[in-house]
């Protein structure tokens, strides 16, 4: 049988054999035991079982195994590793972790963020199931979106900011609306997809058209805690020319520092915890950072 040429006109006996072999391989491929009396089938079944060995816990050989299997730690780890991947643009440096095996660099990066990712997904557990659909700013999966899919993240963040601006505009909070529009424009500038960017710009213009042409009163509280400056001073500056809140609060900044404890990624989740308030459109993990201008240690 091994030397038979592959021809289209197979004999019925061959077709029956093909069908039987197909069923056998289908069964073995699904992890079913081999039928009795078939030596090769039982070898294949043993091989397949061996390949499955410790599959779930292969890379988690400590107490982390006890975690809820629904939040597959491997998946969490991989998503985090993808997020930390230098080629994805995040550029996380490697640093001390509980290195288990001295393998490649990517592995160490992956391990470094293991705890963080597990924490994120553990915290996001409910959201994983309930909050299906695209993660938007404020959703539990937003931190992952932000690092894994930056382009989409900027775009989604811009959309979200524009929605807030429109809301502010319709409610007569003109200063808020202007500030949000300014933030949105900064974000839109980072969106490289031309269709998406032009759509966002059109929305931005539509929202801006809702606003009165004059100056705005700064009486309303600033919605974004990370950018209080322009809210107080930016009143007389109309439209797109308004100053951006400065170089610090961009979404590209919050990379976890190598000194990480387990909580570095967690703060952005808090954006979902303030219903009723306008969501901060710049991740609050950036906002509270003081500019340490005077605090730089002297280099030896």
């Amino acid at each position: 049988m091994t030397d038979k040429q592959p021809t289209a006109d197979e004999q019925p006996a061959d077709l029956a054999a093909f069908a039987a072999d197909t069923l056998l391989l289908d069964a073995l491929g699904s992890g079913a035991p081999a039928p009795p009396g078939d030596r090769v089938a039982s070898l294949l079944a043993a091989w397949r079982a061996d390949l499955d060995a410790e599959l779930l816990t292969t890379d988690v050989d400590d107490s982390a195994v006890e975690r809820d299997p629904a939040a597959d730690p491997e998946v969490a780890r991989l998503l985090a590793a993808a997020a930390a991947d230098p080629s994805a643009g995040t550029g996380v440096t490697t640093a001390g972790t509980h290195a288990r095996r001295g393998a490649g660099r990517s592995r160490r990066v992956a391990q470094r963020v293991l705890g963080v990712a597990a924490a994120v997904l553990a915290a996001a557990g409910g959201g994983l199931v309930v909050g299906a659909g695209h993660a938007t700013p404020g959703s539990p999966l937003w931190p992952i979106t932000r690092v894994v899919y930056r382009e989409q993240a900027d775009s989604a963040q811009a959309e979200h900011t524009l929605a807030l601006a429109r809301k502010a505009a319709t409610e007569g909070r003109v200063a808020d609306a202007r500030l949000l529009l300014t933030q949105a424009d900064t974000l839109i500038a980072r969106v490289s997809d031309p269709d998406r960017a032009s759509r966002l710009r059109a929305t931005s213009k539509a929202v801006r058209d809702l606003l009165p042409a004059g100056t705005s009163s700064p009486s309303a509280p600033a919605p974004a805690p990370s950018a209080p400056g322009p809210a107080a001073t930016g009143g007389p500056v109309p439209g797109t020319g308004a100053p951006t809140p400065g170089p610090l609060p961009t979404t590209a900044v919050p990379q976890p520092k190598p000194t990480a404890g387990g909580n570095q990624i967690l703060p952005p989740i808090g954006t979902g915890n303030s219903p009723g308030l306008p969501l901060p459109t710049i991740p609050p993990s950036v906002g509270p950072l003081p500019l340490p201008t005077g605090l730089l240690p002297k280099l030896p």
């Binding site: 397949r48 390949l51 499955d52 599959l55 292969t58 597959d72 491997e74 998946v75 991989l78 998503l79 997904l121 994983l128 909050g131 299906a132 659909g133 695209h134 993660a135 999966l141 992952i144 979106t145 894994v148 899919y149 989409q152």
Partner: peptide, 21 residues
């Protein structure tokens, strides 16, 4: 592919065992 992180996680969970084997 449209960057839905929930679907990404689910897809990864589904495909990873086969990839490992």
């Amino acid at each position: 592919a449209r960057s839905d992180p929930v679907a990404t996680a689910a897809l990864l969970a589904r495909l990873r065992p086969g990839i490992v084997r």
